[in-house]
Design a binder for these strands. Structure first.
Length: 589
DNA sequence: GCCGTTTTCGGCCCGACTGTTTTCAGTCG
C-alpha cells in the first residue's frame, strides 16, 4: 500500500511549507494527503488505470500534486520533499509531538541550537539553553521537559477501554456539582475511536468559573495546564490530558458538534456552511450576525442542509455526502448502524475448562443478566497446551455438561420474560489454524459442535502469501464458521499479520465464513476500515468479547462501537439475530 | 496548490489560551 506513505510525505511537505510561512499551499497539501488517506484503492492501481488524469480525480489532488504522485510511483521519491527535508534536517514528527512545540518553534530550536530530535531537546532544556531563545521562556522550557517525560512514559495514546472508565467517573463527579446543568463527553471518546489522545468534556453552566475551579480541584488531577472561563485543561494522574469546556445552553449543540470532531469532519462541515453563506463555529450557525441554530446537534446539521449522524461516523469518510442525501430524501442515505443493545449473545467466551476464570454455569448466569438469548462457549483446543486447550475427548465431555445445563436452565426460564426464555448455551471452540492451514481438531469432532471458531495463535510472522493461503485454507474447511481476531493485531504492541486482507475477504464471501470483531480493547480486530470493507462485500461478521472471565462480557460495547465506526448495520452482524437465524447461518457453511 | 449552486480568479475553518509580550505569535483542537 503506497497511500499511507504518500499521504505522510504530503503532510510533511505541508509542515515544511508552514515553517517557511508559504501561504495556502500547506492547506492544499494537507487536503491532498487526506484525500489519499481516504482512498479505498491503492494509488498505483489508480495511476495504472488512467494515469495523471485519474489521479487528479482524487479529492484535493490537482495537476501539480498528481505529478508528484507519479514521481513517487516511478522513482520512490519526491524531489520537492527531498529538498525540503535537506533544508530542515530535524525530526519534525518527533519534535512536534512535544506539547507546545509546533513547526515554527521546532525550526527555531534547530537554527539556534542544532536540535534535531527529542534527545537533543531534552539535553538542551535540562541545561536551560531553551529558555533564553526568542519566543521561549522559563515556563515553556519546564513544560517541554514535562511533556518529554510523559511521551517516554505513555508512548502517546491510550486505549479506549482504559479511558472510558476514567471519563465515566469524572463525569459522575461533575454531575454532582450543582452549577453543572448539562454534561457530555465529546472528542474522540464520544466517537469511540480505538485509541485516545486526550479527553474533551462539555458542560452547560451559568457559573463557568465555579465549574472550572471544581474541575481542576477534582481527585486525580495532577497538573493544571490552563484555566480560563470557557476552557480548562488538566493532566490526570493516569497520564492523560482532559479538557473541560463550558458553553451557554443556546450553544450546547453546536459546541458538542464542534468538540466531537473529527477535525476533518469539522473542516468539511464548515466548508458546507460557507458554501451556503453561513458561518458555523462552536457557538452556533450564523447567517450574518443572526444565530439560526445551536441548541442541539440535530438543528445544527439541519441548518446546513444535513441530517444529523451518529458520532462514530464523523470522520469525513463519506458520512456528510450520505447525510446530504438523507436530508434530501435520496439514496443511499446514512446507514442505520447497529445499536448498543442489539447484541443477542456472545459467541466467544472461555470457561474454566481451558483455564478461564468461570464455570459454564456462571457464564450462563452472567449472560442471562445481560438479557442474552444465547451464549457460546469457545474454549481453546489442544494445540495451545499453555492455555490448557481441549482435545477431542474433552470436547465430547464438555458437550454432555452443556446439554445438561441447557435442560436445567430451560426449565427455569419458563418463569422468565419472553425474551429470556430462549437462553441457550451453545458449544463452540476456538480451534487453531496450524501453519499449513489445517485445524488441530478432527473434522468429525468439529462437525458435532454447534459452531466452530478458528484462529491463528502461532507462527504469526509468516510471510504474506503463506499466511494468506493458511487462513483461506482454514476458511475452506466446511466446519469452520468463524475466524477469530482475523488480522492479529494487538494495539500498541503488535502489528497485524502480513496477509492480503482483500483476498481473505473474497474467500470469506465465497465460503460463507463469518469474520469476528473481537471486542477486547487491545485487539478491536477487525478494525473500522476492515469492517467497512467487509460490509461492502456483504461478508457477515460477529461481535464477540473473547472473555476469559465474566466481568469481561461487558467489553462487548467496544466491539459494537468499532462496528458502528465501520458503518455496520444489524443485518451485517449475525449475533444480532435470533437463535434460529443464527443456527441457520452456521448451517449454510 | 486546489477549487467552483456567487466564482476559471480570488478565496482558502476558526476561536481560546499561553507565554512572552506591550499588541501578538504560536499552538491546539
Amino acid at each position: 500500500m503506497n497511500n499511507q506513505e504518500i499521504a505522510k510525505i504530503f503532510y510533511e511537505i505541508a509542515s515544511y511549507l508552514e515553517i517557511d510561512r508559504v501561504p495556502f499551499k500547506p492547506y492544499a497539501y494537507q487536503r491532498a494527503a487526506m484525500g489519499i488517506e481516504g482512498l479505498e484503492e491503492d494509488a498505483r492501481e489508480i495511476y495504472d488505470r488512467g494515469g495523471l488524469k485519474e489521479l487528479e480525480k482524487i479529492p484535493g489532488v490537482g495537476k501539480n500534486i498528481a505529478l508528484k504522485i507519479e514521481e513517487y510511483l516511478k522513482t520512490g521519491k519526491i524531489g520537492t520533499y527531498e529538498r525540503l527535508k535537506k533544508r530542515n534536517p530535524f525530526n519534525l514528527g518527533e519534535l512536534t509531538a512535544v506539547e507546545g512545540l509546533g513547526v515554527r518553534k521546532s525550526k527555531i530550536l534547530y537554527q539556534q541550537l542544532k536540535i534535531k530530535n527529542i534527545k537533543d531537546l531534552e539535553k538542551a532544556a535540562k541545561v536551560h539553553k531553551v529558555a533564553s531563545l526568542e519566543g521561549f521562556g522559563e515556563k515553556t522550557e519546564k513544560n517541554i521537559l514535562q511533556s518529554i517525560a510523559f511521551l517516554k512514559r505513555s508512548k502517546g495514546r491510550f486505549l479506549l477501554g482504559e479511558i472510558v472508565p476514567i471519563v465515566e467517573n469524572i463525569i459522575e463527579k461533575l454531575k454532582t456539582f450543582k452549577e453543572v446543568e448539562k454534561i457530555s463527553v465529546a472528542g474522540s471518546v464520544r466517537r469511540m475511536k480505538e485509541t485516545i489522545g486526550d479527553v474533551d468534556i462539555l458542560v452547560v453552566s451559568k457559573k463557568p468559573e465555579k465549574v472550572m475551579a471544581f474541575f481542576v480541584s477534582l481527585d486525580g488531577v495532577e497538573k493544571v495546564w490552563s484555566q480560563g472561563s470557557t476552557k480548562s485543561s488538566v493532566r490526570m494522574k493516569e497520564g492523560l490530558d482532559m479538557d473541560l469546556r463550558v458553553v451557554p445552553d443556546k450553544s450546547y449543540g453546536s459546541a458538542l458538534q464542534y468538540f466531537t470532531g473529527s477535525k476533518e469532519h469539522n473542516i468539511a462541515t464548515r466548508r458546507i456552511a460557507i458554501s451556503k453563506n453561513l458561518k458555523l463555529n462552536e457557538y452556533g450557525v450564523f447567517k450574518g450576525l443572526k444565530m439560526i441554530a445551536g441548541k442541539n446537534e440535530e438543528e445544527v446539521y439541519k441548518a446546513i442542509g444535513l441530517k444529523a449522524m451518529e458520532p462514530e461516523l464523523r470522520e469525513n469518510g463519506g458520512e456528510l455526502e450520505a447525510a446530504l442525501r438523507s436530508a434530501q430524501g435520496k439514496l443511499p442515505g446514512l446507514p442505520k448502524i447497529i445499536g448498543y443493545n442489539d447484541i443477542k449473545g456472545d459467541l466467544h467466551c472461555h470457561s474454566n475448562w481451558d483455564g478461564g476464570a468461570n464455570s459454564i454455569k456462571e457464564i450462563a448466569r452472567a449472560a442471562e443478566k445481560m438479557d442474552y438469548q444465547y451464549i457460546g462457549i469457545s474454549d481453546h483446543t489442544k494445540f495451545l497446551r499453555i492455555e490448557s486447550g481441549l482435545d477431542e475427548n474433552q470436547l465430547a465431555q464438555q458437550r454432555k455438561e452443556i446439554d445438561k445445563l441447557n435442560k436445567e436452565l430451560r426449565i427455569k426460564n419458563y418463569a422468565m420474560p419472553a425474551s429470556r426464555q430462549e437462553l441457550r448455551i451453545l458449544q463452540g471452540c476456538e480451534a487453531n489454524i496450524l501453519n499449513d492451514g489445517s485445524i488441530d481438531i478432527k473434522d468429525e469432532v468439529l462437525a458435532k459442535l454447534d459452531f466452530v471458531i478458528a484462529g491463528v495463535h502461532s507462527s504469526m510472522k509468516m510471510d504474506k502469501d503463506k499466511m494468506t493461503e493458511r487462513i483461506i485454507k482454514a476458511m475452506k474447511n466446511p466446519n469452520v464458521d468463524i475466524i477469530s481476531h482475523p488480522t492479529g493485531r494487538i494495539l500498541k504492541r503488535r502489528d497485524e499479520y502480513q496477509a492480503d486482507f482483500d483476498k481473505i475477504l473474497r474467500a470469506a464471501k465465497e465460503t460463507n465464513t463469518i469474520l469476528e470483531i473481537n471486542s477486547s480493547p487491545c485487539r478491536l480486530d477487525l478494525k473500522d476500515i476492515n469492517i467497512k470493507k467487509a460490509k461492502n462485500l456483504e461478508v457477515k461478521m460477529v461481535i464477540n468479547t473473547d472473555a476469559h472471565q465474566i466481568d469481561q462480557l461487558g467489553l462487548i460495547k467496544y466491539g459494537i462501537s468499532q462496528a458502528r465506526r465501520g458503518w455496520a448495520e444489524k443485518k451485517d452482524i449475525i449475533n444480532t439475530q435470533s437463535l434460529s437465524k443464527l443456527l441457520q447461518y452456521f448451517s449454510q457453511k
